[in-house]
Design a protein around this nucleic acid. Structure first.
Length: 889
RNA sequence: GGGCAAUUAGCUCAGUUGGUUAGAGCGUUACAUUGACAUUGUAAAGGUCAGAGGUUCAACUCCUCUAUUGCCCACCA
């Protein structure tokens, strides 16, 4: 028998265990089948890892994700499913490119790296950086114990994924869902690229609202926060019912505004708020998404207005701004305001708080301007050729938006926690065309080629001379939207797609529900006509102990690798899973992780103790027959734990599953059963069985310590990782209750002793009276004596009426205890009788009411039905109570 | 402005169709300690379940309002 160290030092074992897992090849379900660990006809379970961005290292949020998914995966693997967890990374286009750009600026002292280096050289730098990040990420995933099938690893920007991207793009292009349009988009001057609406971060900041007139001869005062854009005004919109302005609607004015000639038409639009500002809106179609919408509305109605772009992509005024051209926007604003003041056209300045859109990635204020871009139309009907979606027939005409709504509405996809379904629908309702092209270099290039007036969209470049490919790249979410099927080989066929798709669960943070989850639903329902996953499990974000976001600037970042080094991977994993609720942010502190480190050590020591007390530990052991009351008690508890833990895991309640296990392991197994085992002595098969089962149940949660113990105890090469998940055996043993009683007697004695500060209590009697007229004789009274010895209890005097509850009598006399934990029959009977009384009274009343012809005829049918339903319900309850009462006696 | 949620012990949170005496971890206090484990054990203290109404035989649980907090969305110029 081995002599194990007193404390579990995680870092002495983790690397070795990790290697054993990897070398076994069992992370790959095909290997499991070949080795006979998994049955050939087993059901499939698959998850894709939300690919981390190759912008750096993993943080606690990633660690939480890996921990939860690994629990799912290890559980299903042990359960016998063909379990696949696919790893991968995301090229994260803009994020990675701008990160590398800023590194080059900082370290190589370049002013404009992209211009200085050129496309290929710059991209090489980005690829180098991405490769390094990727390697770090892979290493970190392995450290977390994540049982990912690395043989299937994918990258959103590799060749295989590129083919998937081109194929989907072309399909959408051919269906007319992808189009090139000239629209107002969000432009980042700093990043020299567009951003999609979802990528904007709104920031509140104080601003000024200026009330002014274009010129003296213009009748309407308008308000604006951005006077410089007013050079691009081509209309003034008022509410059609606004009496102040009704007379002007339809008129066109040729004006001189701060020295420049502009032409403004007065139009009516019922979207105008009469009470805000002056009730009149200067319409700038080129520099406001709202105004652009009005521009299109006017065009559609046959009353077109002009569109004049006065701000350029460089953030300066364009030649259309006349004398103001080439001025920076801010400067132009100052000059124009000064001009208005001089000519007494500025009527009022008002301080306001404005909500301003900024680009998250580039960290600058977004400039709305018109540009030719690629869009996905979510509202256009197309024919879904082959549909496996419930409620949508093959060949049906649908929109992408409808598909996205349908699959969640009809519960083909379940979102946990389900309040996020509401958020999801709300978002879809407001969904607008998705701008998918970016003017950056790192990413999938748009698979469209131009030759003079010709346009070609295809998977490969067209034949012939003179074709030039579109320089734009695709939004990173376009490629990650294909993730569930592009990782399984699509558009090729290798069997994986057929076996593992739709995937079983998608587990990710609730912050990317729209960015990613919704887009995967869009892309998959469109491309394959099926759902990408059956269940979406959203975890909360990991925050610091005060609930703040972890950020470098706050200095409150807890690095997973540091915690792993300090407390071990298992402790780190547990701290992220236990005490967390799906969708709700988790507050994490080092103390919490330390607490779980203590638990891993406890489990280690429980095993050490058992090791000493098990004759010949066997890996393969069935539930043995109990020899003592304590055996019966713990075996019964163990069965319930197997049942409950399994059920909780199946219900995605990992926190609850872990808590049940911890309470059992620490509270019942260690604190009670092992203490008794010390007294009763003897080597026991029950111990063997308990250790075996507990290790299996804990393995998905804390794989390293359990695998280590497994190896040390059984001294074999067999991996716990692929052992079979425990099954519930016999659940009832009569003598279990005997031990439950003993346990409660002991607890009561301890409490009494502690309160009365009495060290020595002599306990000789083993007769217990739970109720006045009923004596319960504990059959193996020896245990009580042994326990008494253990507790150093010697009853030396008569004790009664303590707290009005507990009465201990001296040697040879009866002991009466108000049993807590064990059902107090007297009280419970009374309670149930009271319940039955009150419910019966209610039933009688209801029945009288329902048999009253007057009520039945007068009351609305709905009410009568409701009352009837309620009657049935209450009668059910009554039966339940009566059954409980019966089982009690 | 619209939507979604939260409010339970000093702190972090459970509480699954309304039905036992509302639970756990941490922290606090007292005691214990050669023994599998001080990364320990035993016990105790601590809650008018945010507030006010309502529905019900019965409310932490359902409804309404109020207060506070958080998140998401949105074009108020």
């Amino acid at each position: 028998m081995k002599d194990l160290p007193k404390a579990f030092e995680a870092k002495n074992y983790e690397e070795k265990i990790g290697k054993r897992w990897e070398e076994s090849g069992f992370f790959n379900p095909d290997v499991c089948v070949k080795a006979g660990v998994t049955e050939k006809d087993a059901s499939y379970f698959s998850i894709v890892l939300p690919p981390p961005n190759v912008t750096g290292t993993l943080h606690m949020g990633h660690a939480a994700m890996l921990a939860i998914e690994d629990i799912m995966v290890r559980y299903h693997r042990m359960k016998g499913d063909r379990t696949l967890w696919i790893p991968g990374t995301d090229h994260a286009a803009i994020a990675t490119e701008s990160k590398v750009e800023s590194i080059l600026i900082k370290e190589k002292k370049m002013a404009k790296p992209k211009q200085e280096m050129g496309r290929e050289a710059f991209l090489n730098e980005v690829r180098k950086f991405a490769k390094e990040s990727h390697d770090t990420i892979v290493n970190q995933c392995k450290k977390m114990g994540a049982s990912l099938d690395w043989s299937r690893e994918a990258f959103t920007l590799d060749d295989q994924r590129n083919r998937a991207v081109r194929a989907v793009f072309k399909k959408m292009f051919d269906d007319g869902l992808i189009y090139r349009g000239f629209r107002v988009i969000n432009w980042s001057v700093k990043g020299q690229s567009t951003c999609s609406d979802d990528e904007l971060v709104y920031v509140e900041r104080p601003g000024k609202l200026y009330y002014f007139k274009y010129s003296k001869d213009f009748p309407i005062t308008i308000a604006t926060t951005r006077p410089e854009t007013k050079l691009g005004d081509t209309a003034v919109a008022v509410h059609p019912d606004d009496k102040r302005y009704k007379q002007f609607i339809g008129k066109t004015y040729d004006l001189e505004f701060v020295g420049e000639k502009i032409k403004v038409k007065i139009i009516a639009d019922d979207g105008i708020d009469m009470n805000y500002g002056t009730g009149a809106l200067g319409v700038t179609p080129a520099h406001s998404a709202v105004d652009f919408a009005m521009y299109e509305k006017q065009k559609a109605a046959g009353n077109p207005i002009d569109l004049i772009q006065v701000i350029g992509e460089d953030g300066k005024m364009t030649h259309r701004a006349g004398a103001y051209s080439d001025l920076e926007v801010e400067k132009a604003r100052a000059v124009i305001l000064e001009n208005l003041r001089v000519h007494k056209l500025l009527e009022k300045e008002e301080d306001i708080i404005q909500n301003i859109g900024t680009s998250d990635r580039f960290n600058d204020i977004v400039e709305p301007l018109p540009k030719l871009q690629w869009f996905i139309d979510v509202n256009k009907k197309f024919k879904l050729k082959e549909s496996k979606i419930k409620g949508v027939k093959s060949g049906a005409s649908v929109t992408l938006k409808e598909l996205m709504q349908k699959v969640v509405n009809s519960k083909q996809i379940t979102i946990i926690p389900n309040q996020f379904e509401k958020t999801y629908f709300h978002w879809i309702d407001n969904l607008r065309p998705w701008n998918i092209s970016r003017q950056i270099w790192y990413g999938h290039q748009v698979p469209v080629w131009y030759r003079k007036e010709e346009i070609y969209c295809g998977i490969n470049a067209p034949e012939g001379e003179g074709w030039v490919q579109d320089k734009d790249t695709l939004d990173t979410w376009f490629s990650s939207g294909l993730w569930t099927f592009s990782t399984l080989g699509w558009p090729d066929e290798n069997g994986d797609l057929e076996n593992f798709h739709p995937t079983s669960v998608l587990e990710t943070g609730h912050d990317i529900l729209f960015f990613w989850v919704a887009r995967m639903i869009l892309m998959t329902t469109y491309t394959l006509g099926c759902i990408p996953f059956e269940t979406v499990y959203l975890h909360g974000l990991v925050r610091d102990e005060q609930g703040r976001k972890m950020s470098k600037s706050l200095g409150n970042v807890i690095n997973p690798l540091d915690m792993i080094e300090k407390f071990g991977t298992d402790a780190t994993r547990l701290s992220l899973v236990l005490g967390s609720t799906p969708g709700i942010d988790l507050k994490l502190s080092e103390e919490k992780i330390a607490g779980f480190r203590n638990f891993t050590n406890k489990l280690w020591n429980i095993s050490r103790f058992m090791l000493i007390n098990i004759e010949k530990p066997s890996e393969d052991i069935k539930m043995p027959a109990p020899k003592t009351d304590a055996d019966a008690w713990i075996l019964e508890k163990m069965q319930n734990v197997i049942k409950d833990v399994t059920a909780q895991i199946e219900n995605y309640n990992y926190s609850m599953a872990g808590e049940i296990l911890r309470d059992f392991t620490w509270g019942e197994l260690a604190d009670w059963y092992l203490e008794i085992a010390k007294i009763e002595g003897g080597k026991s098969l029950v111990l063997n069985y308990l250790l075996n089962t507990v290790l299996k149940l804990w393995h998905p949660f804390m794989p390293f310590v359990t695998e280590t113990i497994w190896e040390e105890v059984y001294e074999s090469d067999a991996l716990l990782m692929v052992e079979k998940w425990p099954k519930v055996g016999r659940k009832k043993f009569d003598s279990a209750v005997q031990f439950e009683i003993i346990k409660n007697v002991v607890t009561a004695i301890r409490s009494w002793r502690s309160e009365n500060k009495i060290d020595a209590v002599k306990l000789l009697s083993a007769v217990i009276v739970p109720e006045k007229n009923q004596k319960l004789v504990i059959e193996n009274a020896g245990i009580i004596e042994k326990l008494a010895r253990l507790e150093k209890l010697v009853i030396t005097e008569k004790m009664e009426n303590h707290n009005g509850k507990k009465v201990f009598l001296a040697a040879g006399m009866e002991i009466a205890v108000d049993f807590e934990g064990v059902v107090d029959k007297g009280k419970e009977t009374k309670r149930l009788k009271d319940e039955i009384d009150s419910v019966t009274k209610y039933i009688t009343g209801l029945e009288a009411k329902l048999s009253n012809a007057d009520f039945v005829s007068r009351a609305p049918a709905v009410v009568v039905e409701k009352e009837k339903a309620k009657l049935l319900e209450v009668k059910d309850k009554l039966l339940k109570f009566e059954a409980q009462l019966k089982s009690l006696n």
